[in-house]
């Protein structure tokens, strides 16, 4: 196989995939090809199956139909080719783990044995600390980090195993706007540095609008895939939701109105 054909091969292929729980179908007929180094935003309401898509790619959630291939082979649980960034959760202040330990677990936390000092691992952790500008915080207990600081280390934890694909599940929620932008920019830099594709689940596309190549929009068991300009339009989303939806653009930000997805936050800006 020549280098040319490798470059054209998709990294991840979701083929005619469906997930149903009893009567409820989250989505079906989902086809998605993710190319190396592509940044894809996965957008949709709560319960539209965004997280289930990530879980299926992680091999944690079985598909009802179809298949998911990574490098042409069915996805397996716990592949080191895949990095994962969870939603921010406050860590208990008593947690016996420093920020550098969080990074290390992303590298060898799944292996057997006691975590003995290891020069190769130490160098790798130092390298990632350089990347995320985390030296000042490295020896602090994770319980004392702010949300934005912790999510920076989450980005580091995800890239430390040099994955080809990073799955991020609402990594910016519970952060203020400034922190959102900082973490999003860091993730963008890191995935370029490590040449990894990103599948980024979010309900607000604005912090990542400048870096997104394509959008996968899930709603009502249906979906649309395309560039932000192709998908985030009033007529496209109106058809997807089956009701009048307006996409407003204001000073480079996108606001979607009329989806009723966010009834609990009626005045929140989102997309």
């Amino acid at each position: 196989m020549t280098a040319g054909t490798v470059a054209k091969k998709p990294l991840l292929e979701v083929i005619d995939a469906e997930i149903s729980f009893g009567q409820k179908t989250l989505w079906s007929g989902l086809n998605l090809r993710v190319n190396p180094e592509e940044f894809i935003a996965v957008i949709g309401a709560n319960g539209s199956g965004k997280t289930s898509l990530l879980k299926a790619i992680l091999g944690q959630e079985p598909l009802t139909r179809g298949e998911i291939l990574l490098h042409g082979a069915p996805v397996l649980k716990g592949s080191s080719r895949v990095g994962y960034i969870p939603q921010h959760r406050a860590t208990d202040s008593g947690t016996p783990m420093r920020a550098r330990d969080l990074l290390r677990m992303g590298l060898d936390g799944h292996r057997f044995g006691f975590p003995l000092p290891n020069a190769r691992i130490r160098r790798r952790v130092e390298h990632v600390l350089n990347c995320i500008d985390g030296h000042d915080l490295a020896d602090k207990p994770v319980g004392t980090l702010s949300g934005g600081q912790l999510q920076r280390f989450r980005v580091g934890q995800a890239v430390i195993s040099s994955p080809d694909l990073i799955l991020a599940d609402e990594p910016l929620s519970a952060l203020d706007l400034q922190q959102q932008q900082a973490v999003a920019n860091l993730l963008d830099e890191e995935r370029r540095e490590h040449r990894a594709a990103v599948l980024f689940v979010t309900h607000d596309v604005n912090p990542i609008l400048g870096m997104v190549d394509r959008v996968l929009y899930l709603a009502n068991g249906k979906f649309r895939i395309g560039t932000p300009d192709e998908v985030l339009r009033s007529e496209v989303l109106s058809e997807l939701y089956g009701t009048q939806v307006d996409v407003l653009r204001n000073q480079g930000r996108i606001v979607v109105v009329g989806t009723h997805d966010h009834d609990h936050h009626p005045d929140e800006e989102w997309s």
Partner: peptide, 23 residues
């Protein structure tokens, strides 16, 4: 305990990411 120390620590302190890494 010494054999499973790393994955057990991962699972205890950071269960979501541990699960994603196949622990």
């Amino acid at each position: 305990l010494l054999l499973v120390w790393r994955p057990l620590t991962f699972a205890s302190l950071d269960p979501e990411v541990a699960a994603a890494r196949g622990v």
